[in-house]
């Protein structure tokens, strides 16, 4: 599905990615983890074409993404902080994104799911953070793309919505889609992901299932496994 070779990226003097090689197979949920500044977001943004790598190649479904925008038809992306044009109404935003991508009716179901009907005629500038995030989720999931990238999808969500989101993710997985997630909430990651990719200082430190990680670090649970990687490397 996605294959990354020897990816380098530098911001100013700060070398964020130092030769990342990663291949993600089709189907399943992959969590990209790592401490702050390890390059998670940069990696995801590189795949999305928002960050231009200094070196290395990225292929999505076998096509090099360099200087192309068409491949993004195959990706649904949930950005970390969603700030929308404040003068637009929710309804209009949804209509607009559909207009920019392709027509779909999936949003009706999603709006219902997240109880967004009362907000449809409100301006985006007047919404709370959590509601905005729900709109964001609707925008992401309403297109039926084979690759879904979620950057901190849980932020600002109430427990009910969180459960719905999890269900949604599982449902998409069941359709055979590839889902890429970054999150700080370890329990969430542990619950949903099939495989994790651990980034450390610009390189892939670990790639495998949670079970593998536990075995490798000889820790009984996921939280401790992650903590042990961090302490070992900083010690």
């Amino acid at each position: 599905m996605v294959s990354i070779e020897n990816l380098h990226k530098k911001f100013g003097k700060n070398q964020v990615l130092k030769g990342v090689d990663l291949s993600i197979n089709e189907g399943g949920i992959f969590a990209v983890l790592g401490p702050n500044g390890s390059g998670k977001t940069t990696l995801i943004k590189s795949v999305l074409g928002m960050v231009i790598p200094d070196k290395g190649t990225i292929e999505v479904q076998g096509n090099n993404i360099n200087k192309s925008s068409e491949y993004r038809h195959k990706i649904d992306y949930l950005p970390q902080i969603a700030n929308f044009p404040s003068n637009l109404k929710v309804k209009e935003l949804i209509k607009m994104i559909k207009d920019l991508r392709k027509p779909t009716n999936e949003e009706i179901h999603l709006i219902e799911l997240f109880k967004l009907e009362p907000f449809l005629d409100k301006k985006l500038g007047n919404l709370s953070g959590g509601t905005k995030q729900k709109v964001n989720i609707v925008l992401t999931f309403m297109f039926d793309s084979p690759l879904i990238i979620l950057d901190e999808p849980t932020s600002g969500l109430d427990p009910i919505s969180l459960i719905r989101l999890k269900d949604l993710i599982q449902a998409e997985k069941a359709k055979g889609k590839t889902i890429l997630i970054t999150s700080h909430i370890m329990s969430f990651v542990e619950e949903v992901s099939d495989e994790i990719v651990f980034l450390l200082e610009g390189k892939i430190y670990f790639k495998g299932t949670i079970q593998d990680l536990k075995t490798k670090t000889k820790q009984p649970d996921f939280d401790h496994a992650i903590a042990s990687i961090l302490t070992n490397n900083h010690a």
């Binding site: 999305l48 925008s69 950005p79 969603a82 700030n83 044009p85 994104i97 920019l100 991508r101």
Partner: peptide, 16 residues
């Protein structure tokens, strides 16, 4: 002001 919105657009299949 529209920076985040721009990022949203960037993730869409649109040319920069």
């Amino acid at each position: 002001n529209s920076k985040e919105f721009t990022e949203l657009l960037l993730a869409q299949p649109l040319k920069r």
